[in-house]
């Protein structure tokens, strides 16, 4: 069995991966063109669309908005977890959207940018396999409908039940926000080469992805002080994802997308998290090897 498959299998997950050297185009993949569930990774295209609109003068990133405590989508971080009214600039909500995957901030931005505009930006960038289907609130509504429950607390207690999981539309790439590993590394390459938007906007997106706090997935595979890891995770029941860029001190930079789906239903999947880091490391090591190897490992 191939090395990447072995890593995923040992972790009890099905995995999809694509890694590419941003500057040479050298690549390696596993199921790189198969549709995958984006989950919170959709916040990266949202952020790109946000800054592209700002460049066109349609949005002022410094504009202060107030997010009321009512009607916030669920979530355990950022504004979603706060009790009171929050007033912050749109770009600071963008920071929370990426750094701690804050759903309330993401939906505030999305309401301003528009779902159609996010998809238009993706189409404009040539990312034809990527589609954003719903806001965080919309995604949660679909989950509650499919699970047949009224509130989020109840929902979070039901998603270890295989029977419930089998009904969730948001776990089916055809019916939720979706992409492919290759589309995601292409997007990251555009961001890192200042091609997804203007240089200032791309730098802002890179900064926010570098401020993401989670250490358990991509970052766990690169425990080196001199290696920078920027990324965005995606999490739903059985789904563990992260896309990001790994930058080495010698200038080597690698866009990588890892999407997994666990066979087990436990909400805590430390092995799946770690497998994302391990698989990414194996892929990047492969790309950094002095000889030109095969495009699958």
């Amino acid at each position: 069995m191939k090395q990447l498959e072995q890593i995923f299998r040992t972790a009890g997950v099905t995995g999809w991966l694509h890694a590419v050297d941003i500057d040479t185009g050298r690549e390696v993949g596993l199921g790189a063109d198969e549709p995958v569930v984006l989950a919170s990774v959709f916040k990266v295209p949202l952020l790109v669309a946000f800054y592209r609109q700002a460049e066109r003068g349609l949005i002022d990133p410094a504009e202060r908005v107030t997010v009321s405590p009512e009607g916030r989508p669920g979530g355990g971080t950022g504004v979603s977890a706060m009790l009171d009214e929050v007033t912050a600039s749109l770009r600071d909500l963008a920071y929370l959207t990426i750094s701690v995957s804050d759903n309330a901030s993401a939906d505030t931005l999305l309401a301003r940018v528009g779902l159609a505009e996010v998809n238009a930006a993706l189409a404009d960038l040539g990312l034809s396999r990527t589609w954003v289907e719903h806001s965080c609130a919309g995604l949660f509504t679909a989950m509650r409908e499919d699970a047949g429950v009224a509130d989020m607390a109840e929902l979070s207690q039901m998603t270890t039940d295989p029977g419930v999981l089998a009904r969730l539309r948001v776990l089916d790439p055809a019916r939720t926000s979706r992409s492919t590993c290759r589309d995601m590394t292409r997007l990251l390459g555009l961001i890192w080469r200042d091609e997804a938007a203007g240089p200032g906007s791309c730098a802002a997106v890179r900064r926010l992805m570098g401020l993401q706090v989670w250490p358990h997935r991509l970052a766990s595979g690169f425990p080196y002080d001199d290696v920078a890891v920027s990324g965005k995770t995606g999490t739903l029941p059985t789904i563990r994802n992260e896309v990001g860029v790994i930058e080495y001190p010698d200038g080597g930079r690698y866009a990588i997308a890892v999407f997994t789906r666990s066979i087990g239903t436990a909400q805590n999947q430390p092995r799946a998290d770690a497998a994302i880091g391990t698989a990414a490391r194996v892929a990047v090591d492969h790309l950094r090897a002095p000889f030109v190897g095969p495009d699958t490992i």
Partner: peptide, 9 residues
Amino acid sequence: PRPATGFLS
């Protein structure tokens, strides 16, 4: 519930 494994984290 844990923030790092919550929905859409």
